[in-house]
């Protein structure tokens, strides 16, 4: 599948949530530059080959507050191996030409380049959306304005602790989809209860018609399937980053291994 080059990022993301032909869309996450810049490019390709509908492409940051030890460790390793933000950004373009791709980064890396310049770069790279986990509603205005002007979807996050009042305000300015954090915690492989998840997603849907994707804590096909019962998309990160790291440490090809995991997840969403 080659994605339309003329549509805006917001339109490409909307299409990905309707055109997958399964119960829910699959959005795997990778850490750019991990285990190396080139291997990360191969991992992103393998995700698409395995059935990914969208890709969440992380930029390595030294102090990622929303991430658990696996993804934090991958960022530290990527930087220690010499990955730069600029090289990692360049490596996003190939996969962004295949499926709608969202860049995930902490705000300091954006501000270091300047918001306008950073968003302009995303457009050039063919990126469709931006996820900034340390930009809550209250801090979002400058970034949202720049993203809107460029047709890039600034994806908002909601959490189990989010009050209904906040949820209404967050959903009112949502673009692309609502990134629903399934557990009160950082990224990692543990899952909310089925009841808790259903209730949380229902609370989000009360305020919006745009797709609801669930992330943080999905570790296998069974949980992905459970997410598909209530939500429009499943986001899987730590499970795949761990797989890539273990393969690299054992001298095996991470791309082949992660492709198998993504295929299992994708099948579970049928």
């Amino acid at each position: 599948m080659r994605i339309s080059e003329t549509a805006t990022g917001i339109e490409r993301i909307a299409a990905a949530f309707t055109g997958h032909g399964r119960r829910a869309a699959l959005m795997p996450y990778l850490m750019g530059g991990f285990p190396s810049v080139d291997q990360a490019v191969a991992i992103a390709d393998a995700y698409v080959d395995g059935g990914a509908d969208l890709i969440e492409f992380g930029l390595p940051f030294s102090d990622p507050l929303a991430d658990g030890p696996v993804i934090h460790g991958a960022a530290v390793d990527a930087l220690a191996a010499g990955a730069t933000v600029n090289a990692v950004l360049d490596s996003v373009a190939p996969v962004a030409a295949r499926v709608p791709t969202l860049v995930m980064t902490y705000f300091n890396l954006i501000e270091a380049q300047g918001i306008e310049r950073f968003i302009g770069r995303l457009v050039e790279l063919g990126v469709s959306g931006l996820i900034a986990p340390d930009i809550p509603l209250e801090e979002s205005a400058p970034l949202l304005a720049a993203c809107d002007a460029a047709g890039i979807a600034l994806i908002p996050m909601v959490a189990p602790t989010t009050t209904d009042e906040r949820m209404a305000a967050i959903c009112a300015q949502a673009r692309g989809f609502i990134y629903t954090v399934s557990v009160t915690g950082t990224t990692g492989e543990r899952m909310a209860t089925a009841e808790g998840l259903a209730e949380l997603v229902a609370r989000v849907r009360a305020h919006t018609d745009i797709p609801v994707a669930v992330g943080f804590g999905i570790s296998g096909p069974e949980q992905a399937s459970r997410v598909a019962e209530v939500a429009d998309g499943a986001i899987v990160g730590t499970r795949l980053v761990r797989e890539a790291g273990e393969c690299a440490a054992a001298g095996k090809d991470p791309a082949a291994a992660v492709e198998a995991v993504v295929r299992e997840l994708s099948d579970a969403l049928r």
């Binding site: 809550p136 509603l137 959490a159 967050i170």
Partner: peptide, 12 residues
Amino acid sequence: GGQYVPETLMPA
């Protein structure tokens, strides 16, 4: 200043 933290913490 500001509040550059994950949404999970904002209500707290």
